[in-house]
């Protein structure tokens, strides 16, 4: 924006303040966020300060007075990390394929695949879980025995859920930079694939980290897939064919089944854990994003 324009803009701003309803709307929107965080912190305080029935232990046995949510924390982290371990390389492979020669040659297929990925981000998770309960769970049951509700099934579906998000983030970060370098690199005899693997990817680790962090956040926050597929046993899983419970699924189960008392307190503690995780994810993403912008400008 030229300097004189900016000065004119500033004068305009002084001339006319935002009208009342706009300021009110903005205030309301920000207030909602503050209220959300504040309310959950306040509700979780009794649980955090309580000397008996502390939520930070490894046993969940409500009838014996143990309300530990640590197994669920571990379940959430474990599930999100394993979904990431599966989904991240998969997403990276798809992006590399999508940006290099073969896909470039098939322009219409490439465009169709782009729309397909975009559509995948909008599949309702409840539909995904519903299909998996009746398709994947019986398969796992015959393969590994037990009920078929296990960490493995949830991991597979969760990686499918976070895949399109990660693909979109990586693609938007990498494609422009690849295209900017392309004329020079092609003149030097490099293929797009070589350029991508040897120059663009090592230089843009930030984009990859961004995609991974975003995927982790989404995987932690999802409720329906773990709730319907992971079996919900409140203990630490020892293998991928074991049942596990995540924080989000725990919250859904407790509000459905318990009435008041220490179980509720643990519920708010679980909510606070989840909220802190996702806020941390958001802050990390914001830290990563401006650095990326500077890079493109210079």
């Amino acid at each position: 924006m030229p300097k004189s324009d900016r000065a004119a803009q500033k004068r305009q701003d002084k001339d006319s303040e935002a009208s009342l309803w706009i300021r009110l709307a903005t205030f309301l929107a920000v207030l909602a966020v503050v209220a959300l965080c504040g309310m959950i912190v306040i509700a979780a305080l009794p649980a955090l300060l309580a000397s008996s029935h502390t939520p930070f232990e490894w046993v969940w046995q409500p009838y014996q007075g143990h309300f530990g949510i640590l197994p669920m924390c571990a379940g959430s982290v474990l599930l999100a990390l394993s979904a990431l371990a599966l989904g991240f390389p998969w997403a990276l492979a798809i992006v590399i394929w999508h940006l290099t020669e073969e896909a470039q040659a098939l322009a219409s297929a490439r465009k169709g695949f782009g729309i397909f990925i975009r559509l995948l981000t909008t599949v309702p998770t409840v539909v995904l879980s519903f299909a998996a309960v009746f398709l994947l769970t019986p398969l796992l049951r015959t393969a590994f025995g037990g009920t078929g509700m296990c960490l493995l099934g949830a991991t597979l579906m969760l990686s499918l859920l976070i895949l399109p998000t990660m693909v979109l983030v990586m693609e938007s970060g990498l494609s422009q930079r690849l295209d900017a370098l392309c004329p020079h690199a092609l003149a030097l005899g490099l293929s797009r694939y070589q350029l991508l693997c040897h120059c663009v990817l090592p230089k843009n680790r930030q984009t990859l980290i961004q995609a991974a962090v975003l995927g982790f956040g989404r995987a932690c926050g999802d409720t329906l897939l773990p709730l319907m597929l992971a079996g919900n046993a409140p203990k630490l899983p020892t293998g991928f064919t074991e049942s596990a419970r995540t924080l989000s699924a725990h919250m859904a189960l407790v509000t459905a089944n318990e009435v008041g008392g220490a179980a509720y307190n643990s519920l708010f503690a679980a909510g606070l854990c989840l909220l802190c995780t996702t806020i941390a994810v958001t802050l990390v993403l914001r830290r990563l994003a401006p650095a990326k912008d500077q890079k493109t400008h210079s």
């Binding site: 959300l36 956040g217 409720t223 989000s248 859904a252 509000t255 996702t278 806020i279 958001t282 993403l285």
Partner: peptide
């Protein structure tokens, strides 16, 4: 920042907010 935090908040936490309310 506020909108980013809101966008990143899992829907179950929004549900919990309503429940707490």
């Amino acid at each position: 920042l506020a909108m980013d935090i809101l966008a990143g908040t899992p829907s179950i936490v929004m549900g919990l907010f309503g429940f707490t309310l």
